[in-house]
Structure formats: structure tokens, C-alpha cells
Simulated assay, not measured.
Amino acid sequence: MSADSKPAVSPFQARKGWSQRSNQLFTVIVWGIGICTILFICALLFLILQKGLPKLELSFLHGLPSEIDPGGGIGPMLFNSFYVLIISLLISIPLGMSAGIYLAEFAPNNKFIGFVRICVEGLASVPSIIFGLFGIAIFVEAFEVGLTILGGAVSLAFLNLPVLTRVTEEAIRAVPSEMKNASFALGATHLQTIRRVLIPVALNGIITGICLVAGRAFGESAVIILTAGVSTSGEMWDFSLFSPGATLAVHLWYVQSEAIVPDASEIADKAAAVLVFVVLLINVLFRLPLYLNARKTR
């Protein structure tokens, strides 16, 4: 063999080199897309918050809205947003988790249950205005209670129920079967296994689902407009379930489209900043217990 001759490259080495280059290229693409998406989200949040947060005053958060004069607040709408959110979560979380646990642990594997799962997945993607029309049919036409906080909260609970059901079912199914079998081997009943093994292990996924539906419910407007109206009772702390229940998201839409106050644009900027900030705060508050629990177990 001459000194100038080069050793032949085997097909295995060629494929290995191509696989490494493909892996590096795919990694660069994924990193680039991920960084661009994060930068876009951060820029969007910064744009919304920097326009509204510097102008915020305490009087704006607890003040009453104004129809004509400038300087109105969002107090009743902000209170209604939290009030409707809490009521809807109190209804949807127990029902959604129970339905998800049933589908994951107790439901038989037959065509009917498969059809039920398809229906749940379909309802999870139905536009929110459909649930608003359902709320009108139930509370406004059938029960004749009018546009109320109760109708808005229950309609929001129906909106969130399919998502919570699917999230809970998938989170329970993601728990390793070895943990479930080990609990049975130690003599635990099915109910004890669900309470002390499956739910604690799946809690991270369940909390994620609750964060998603809570943020969606807090910022929902179509359902509230159709079932709770676009006005409030005019009181800051009105706990009546049969009062009109316009929320912050509805007020933001109303200010941008219907209001005649001269500072409508400024009110909209501040209301949008408050809305985004509260949604972020809800996610932090729901995840804080998980973060503290993870630090304790380390």
C-alpha cells in the first residue's frame, strides 16, 4: 500500500457520520424554534404589561366603572372574575377528577366507553360560545333566572369539565403500573391505592390541567357575555349569585368596542395588564405547593 492511499470508509461509519450530523442539525432546529417561541411569548407579555402596569393605581383596582366620565375603575369586574372562577372550579374540579379517575381505573374497555372518550375529547375542543348558548338555554330560557353570576359560573364549569376529565385520565394512566401493583401487594385496597399512590404521583399533571382551565376561565368572555351579561350590580362586594356578573375580560371587550369614555384606550391597557398579571399569578400559586413539596422530598 502506498503512502498516499487512504483507507476506505465502511458503510457503517458513513451511516454513523450522517446520523450524527442529522442529530446535530435536528438539535439546532429544535433549540432555535424553542428560543424563538419563548422570545415571542416574552415580548408579547412585555408589550402588554409595559403599556398598562406603569399606569396602574390602587384606586383603579377597587374603583367603580364609569360610563361617561374618565377615571373609572374595574373593582366590581375584578371581584366578579375571581368569584366566578372560584365557583366554577369548585364545581368542575371534583366532577372532572372523578370522571377522569373512573375512565382510567374503573371503566370497562368496550365500545361504549371508547365512544364516551371520543365525546369528551370533542367537547374539549368545542368553541366556548357553544357553552354560552347552552347556558342561555338552561338558565335564561328554562329556569328563567336571567343573566347571573350563577349561570356564568356553571357554564364555565361545563366548559372546563371535558379538559379536566381528559387531563386527569391521562395523568392517572401515566403512573407506572409497578407502583400500583406494589400498593396492591402491600394489601391496600383500590380506593387506598388511588388516594395514596395514583393521585399523589399524578398530581403534577392534574395541577397543570387545573392551571390551564383556571387561566382560561379567568380570561373567558364569550360564555360570560351570553350567560352573565356585560354589566354588574354596581357594588364592589356583591356575593349574590343572581346578580349580573360581567368579568374583567368582558369589561375589556366592552371598553374597546362599546364604551364612550374618553380614556377608553388607557382603561383597556390597564385592564389587559391586570388580566395577564392575574393569569400568571394563578399559575404560580397553583404550582407553588408542588415546588415546595419537591424541595422537601430531595
Results as ranks from 00 to 15, higher is better:
residue 23 N to H: 14
residue 37 T to F: 10
residue 17 G to Y: 13
residue 233 S to W: 08
residue 60 F to Q: 01
residue 43 A to Y: 09
residue 249 A to Q: 06
residue 114 G to V: 04
residue 228 A to D: 07
residue 67 E to Q: 12
residue 289 P to R: 10
residue 89 L to V: 10
residue 213 V to F: 03
residue 157 A to T: 00
residue 29 I to K: 11
residue 18 W to S: 14
residue 148 T to E: 04
residue 113 I to P: 02
residue 186 L to V: 08
residue 269 D to C: 02
residue 23 N to V: 10
residue 222 A to H: 10
residue 166 R to I: 11
residue 167 V to T: 12
residue 185 A to I: 08
residue 37 T to N: 11
residue 151 G to E: 06
residue 28 V to E: 06
residue 163 V to W: 00
residue 46 F to A: 15
residue 230 V to P: 00
residue 222 A to S: 15
residue 80 N to T: 04
residue 54 P to F: 00
residue 140 V to C: 11
residue 217 A to H: 02
residue 25 L to K: 14
residue 141 E to Y: 13
residue 67 E to V: 10
residue 50 Q to A: 12
residue 21 R to Q: 14
residue 196 R to W: 12
residue 170 E to M: 08
residue 158 F to L: 15
residue 44 L to Y: 15
residue 182 A to T: 10
residue 101 I to T: 05
residue 165 T to N: 07
residue 221 S to N: 06
residue 275 L to K: 05
residue 94 P to E: 11
residue 82 F to P: 02
residue 193 T to F: 00
residue 125 S to A: 15
residue 61 L to F: 10
residue 101 I to S: 01
residue 48 I to C: 06
residue 224 I to F: 03
residue 212 L to E: 04
residue 63 G to L: 08
residue 286 F to I: 05
residue 279 V to T: 11
residue 102 Y to G: 05
residue 233 S to T: 12
residue 235 E to D: 14
residue 267 I to K: 05
residue 186 L to W: 04
residue 70 P to A: 07
residue 203 L to M: 13
residue 217 A to R: 00
residue 79 F to H: 03
residue 263 D to R: 09
residue 155 S to K: 03
residue 48 I to R: 03
residue 105 E to V: 08
residue 24 Q to C: 10
residue 95 L to Q: 06
residue 137 A to G: 13
residue 76 P to L: 05
residue 276 V to R: 01
residue 228 A to F: 06
residue 141 E to G: 04
residue 199 I to T: 05
residue 91 I to T: 06
residue 121 E to G: 15
residue 27 T to Q: 15
residue 248 L to W: 00
residue 272 A to K: 06
residue 70 P to H: 09
residue 145 V to N: 10
residue 30 V to T: 12
residue 159 L to P: 00
residue 74 I to V: 14
residue 223 V to P: 02
residue 231 S to G: 07
residue 196 R to V: 04
residue 212 L to Y: 07
residue 64 L to V: 12
residue 290 L to Y: 07
residue 6 K to A: 14
residue 168 T to F: 03
residue 71 G to I: 08
residue 39 L to R: 07
residue 11 P to N: 10
residue 144 E to S: 14
residue 209 G to C: 07
residue 195 R to I: 08
residue 145 V to L: 14
residue 81 S to T: 13
residue 43 A to P: 04
residue 54 P to R: 00
residue 270 K to W: 01
residue 154 V to Y: 02
residue 108 P to A: 09
residue 285 L to F: 12
residue 110 N to C: 10
residue 248 L to E: 01
residue 131 F to S: 01
residue 76 P to C: 12
residue 294 A to I: 02
residue 30 V to L: 14
residue 284 V to L: 15
residue 255 V to K: 05
residue 96 G to P: 01
residue 294 A to Y: 08
residue 288 L to K: 11
residue 136 I to E: 06
residue 140 V to H: 11
residue 281 L to Q: 08
residue 221 S to K: 00
residue 194 I to C: 01
residue 137 A to T: 11
residue 119 C to L: 15
residue 19 S to Y: 10
residue 297 T to S: 13
residue 141 E to V: 15
residue 3 A to G: 12
residue 237 W to I: 14
residue 43 A to K: 09
residue 283 N to D: 15
residue 242 F to V: 03
residue 232 T to E: 06
residue 92 S to H: 03
residue 145 V to H: 09
residue 43 A to L: 11
residue 280 L to S: 09
residue 149 I to Q: 01
residue 283 N to S: 13
residue 159 L to C: 07
residue 31 W to I: 15
residue 106 F to H: 13
residue 250 V to P: 01
residue 39 L to M: 15
residue 149 I to A: 02
residue 28 V to R: 13
residue 261 V to A: 08
residue 113 I to M: 14
residue 14 A to Q: 13
residue 22 S to N: 13
residue 124 A to E: 05
